[in-house]
Simulated scan of single mutants.
Amino acid sequence: MSNLERDPVELLCPPEQPTAPLVRVLTPRDVPLGGPRAMAVRRTLPQRGRTTIGAWCFADHYGPDDVAQTGGMVVPPHPHTGLQTVSWLFEGEIEHRDSTGVHAYVRPGEVNLMTAGRGISHSEVSTAATSTLHGVQLWVALPDTARRALPFFEHAETVPVEVDDAIVRVFVGSLPYVEPEASVTVFSPLVGAQIELPAGGEAWIDLDESFEHGILVDRGPVRVTVRALEGEADDAPDDADPLAETGHTATLEWSELGFVPAGHDGVRLRATADAPVRVVLLGGAPFGEELVMWWNFIGRSHDEIAEARARWQADVISGGEPDGPFGTVAGYDGEPLPAPELPTVRLRPRS
């Protein structure tokens, strides 16, 4: 998915510093995609308080969206560099076309992963069969060793697995003791999974303790308890109020994201008695590289981003070199998306 903001903010994303072992609640901001009837998304990454979770660097949560009211998703051809896009749906269907020649569909329970590498362009349009559109759009920052790779696309089905009361679908990477692993290619240690609980259900989800994790709520609320490490007090007794909040426990509401720092090997997810839960779990080894993110590009400097924008405008928007790194998207009926203007000042680090 493209970032369709008219004035996208340029971000410097330094490696995150360790934080206290608490469940930290991140609230989303609303971002309209497109014109007057724009489909709204709720963006939890990046934000001032947290720019990455592992290599996950962008998370948009959208829907349930009535396509008859908003027109659904219509994202013209647009570029990406230095990242992977991960598309995951709860409802609906999206048609994907890209400059490598791939024509594919995103459907619930199936993952589409596109590796931009040195440059790719693609379009995304909800299909005529879609009445409700509901899902998440995620980006993964590529490490320096892979960010100039040739672009490619992967599609895979996922397998539901029972863990206590939960149904888990791993769509990227792996979870401890959950098989099978996802079959798509990633370039840093990662996990992405959908976890569903019935009303009143609970499950202990084992985690890789070297990862930091985020829990994005699609249905909730959900009570999250981090497994206490040796020497730490778990200040939530088993008979406590199921919605009480403690040092290692927090209640996450719809569309909030709970951040759990590295150093913990499990979380308990608990649904209330009257509401089922669905969350997306994102995790990865802390990303130790500085990133510059602007519009649909990820680089390492202001000049690199400016060069990518200029190449897109010259090669694709102005038609200078259709065989350049961004190529062309065959089969899309419409014009590609021009890049916004760059800021008038050079990038400055955010505090």
Rank of each mutant, 00 (worst) to 15 (best):
E245R: 10
D303H: 10
D66E: 15
V191E: 02
F171W: 04
L4D: 11
E91M: 10
L45K: 03
A262W: 01
W312E: 05
A203H: 09
T70S: 13
D323I: 00
P151T: 03
S318R: 15
T85K: 04
H302C: 08
E124P: 04
P79M: 06
H61S: 14
P221L: 10
T52V: 13
G35W: 04
T100P: 09
S255G: 01
T85P: 00
P15E: 01
G101V: 08
V23P: 01
P160C: 07
G319S: 08
A244T: 12
M114A: 11
Q47H: 05
P77V: 03
L45H: 00
V136I: 14
N3T: 10
I205H: 00
R169L: 09
P343Q: 11
L281D: 09
R311D: 15
L33C: 05
V25C: 01
L26K: 08
S183E: 11
V163T: 13
L243E: 14
R309C: 10
G319Q: 10
M114P: 00
V74Y: 06
D98R: 09
G54V: 07
N296K: 06
A104D: 15
E341R: 05
T158A: 07
W139Q: 07
G201R: 11
D66W: 09
R309P: 08
C57H: 04
